[in-house]
Design a protein around this nucleic acid. Structure first.
Lengths: 261, 261
DNA sequence: CGCATAGTTGAAAGTTTTCAAAAGAGGTGG
DNA sequence: CCACCTCTTTTGAAAACTTTCAACTATGCG
């Protein structure tokens, strides 16, 4: 709820306009440039064709609601481009962002009838949508795919535990340092190659509100902490919502709970 | 690290003494009283025999280390009795308990070579241990078991997200109220039948230190908050590390972020 | 060019933590 | 069976980190 445009309902409105029919191009998955970094890497050529048939590709603008808390859990998504935020809210509006899903990450898994979380695009997002029954079929037909999903969810759980440590036990300073390093890693991953120019850059497409809601802080504290890092020459601003990390080592020390200035 | 006895290394010492050979009694799983509430519910009779063959049953005293952060991830566990705490630590000793695994819950899943978390018994714990290769075999041989595990991990992830909301956005008061209600639900689940006498009782076998490390608070704040609830007659002490919840409705209101006293 | 939104900075307020000490609980041994 | 010791829990007061409230600056889009 931070973008200027009012969040459209779901893929039914904004997304479908750009949607490619699931059975339109069987090659879609075969030529997908991030498939090696996603669940789809578990598939052979036949499996990739099945994936293409089972899914629709959507292209969504910033601030679009993908999944609404409490709504029927009808679909599963694989992010192929951009960044999605996942969150949970309290009745009075307090919100916790539980994670950012960058390209190659999945979202929307649920054993309950309804989603227990919301999801919204941060920037321009491309994703593949699988309806529940189609996902179930894929899991049954392709054991390697199911095994890969199990591994992916297991990794997400480990990530969540790491975030719990951050939320429950780290100081504001430590939280922000951790966040910046995580964003640097995420950027390196989505860029694939760790090119010279990309090195030590962190992609931060989300607003201060989102960062605050992710770290369990207020926007003011986030802003102050980032300013302090900048003053200490630990980081510097870069073009296009990016931050250059000038001292990875120091930030690592801070993030892990040791004091250095 | 709350028990009086120094924590023994692992099953190798304390546990094995009480261990039952995996292939000792094929009936073990068949007669397990909590199997309907665990992963094992996905198994037919043949599968249950395979489970019994693949696992060892351990009986561990309070304060025993089950899994050590950073050690090779060699085994997977299913808790059949008692309560286990899972946690992550910072170098300076700060600790976050990421969850309590009661009877029927699993722990020890990892895609990495080493565990990214620690696990320790809270009280007397019974659990079934599966070595990695044996678990893999089970997953491959019994698709329903794998599907059930996927669902269980998915549920754990949803739980983790709920806990992130608590850690990042709830007040001390709201955190403790949520915790007490969760413990009441856990008690009802492990007791199976929601008998009259059991109603509104919460089982709290863990120390204040553990509660504090779970809620991202200090022991003093936890103690003060519980005392305040007691003074307000929202709760009352009961025998055997139990707490009687006198006003579930009020506690629910508080836990969900509304103000009531 | 100007309004609107996002981000920054300052000062006061507040919730939680830290420091300290007393009270309670559990276990051991005389 | 009670005394005693240790560990846990409770309670109080001061300190601290983060939040809240407020105002100002920067950035972006029509």
């Amino acid at each position: 709820m931070t973008s200027s445009s009012p969040p459209p309902a779901l893929a039914h409105s904004a997304g479908v306009a750009h949607a490619h029919k699931g059975d339109g191009d069987v090659l879609r998955c075969l030529v997908c440039d991030i498939r090696n970094r996603s669940l789809c890497s578990s598939m052979d050529e036949e499996g990739l064709a099945a994936l293409a048939h089972s899914s629709r590709q959507l292209q969504l603008p910033p601030g679009t609601t993908i999944v609404e808390e409490g709504e029927p859990a009808l679909a599963f998504f694989n992010v192929t481009g951009g960044t999605v935020k996942l969150f949970k809210s309290l009745p009075d509006g307090r919100r916790q962002i539980t994670g950012f899903a960058d390209a190659g990450q999945f979202l929307g898994l649920s054993t309950a009838q309804t989603y227990s979380f919301g999801a919204e695009t941060v920037d321009n997002v491309r994703l593949c949508r699988f309806l529940r029954p189609q996902l179930e079929t894929l899991l049954s037909d392709y054991p390697t795919f199911e095994r890969r999903l199990l591994a992916a969810v297991t990794d997400k759980l480990a990530e969540a535990q790491e975030q719990m440590l951050l939320l429950g036990r780290k100081t504001a300073r430590e939280k922000v340092a951790t966040f910046l390093l995580d964003r640097m890693r995420a950027y390196h991953l989505t860029m694939g190659h760790t090119r010279q120019e990309v090195e030590n850059l962190a992609s931060v497409p989300m607003t201060r509100v989102d960062i605050a809601d992710y770290l369990g802080l207020t926007i003011e504290t986030v802003s102050r902490t980032i300013s302090a890092f900048r003053r200490s020459h630990l980081i510097a601003s870069a073009e296009n919502h990016r931050i250059r990390i000038l001292s990875v080592a120091t930030l690592l020390t801070i993030a892990s709970g040791q004091k250095p200035d």
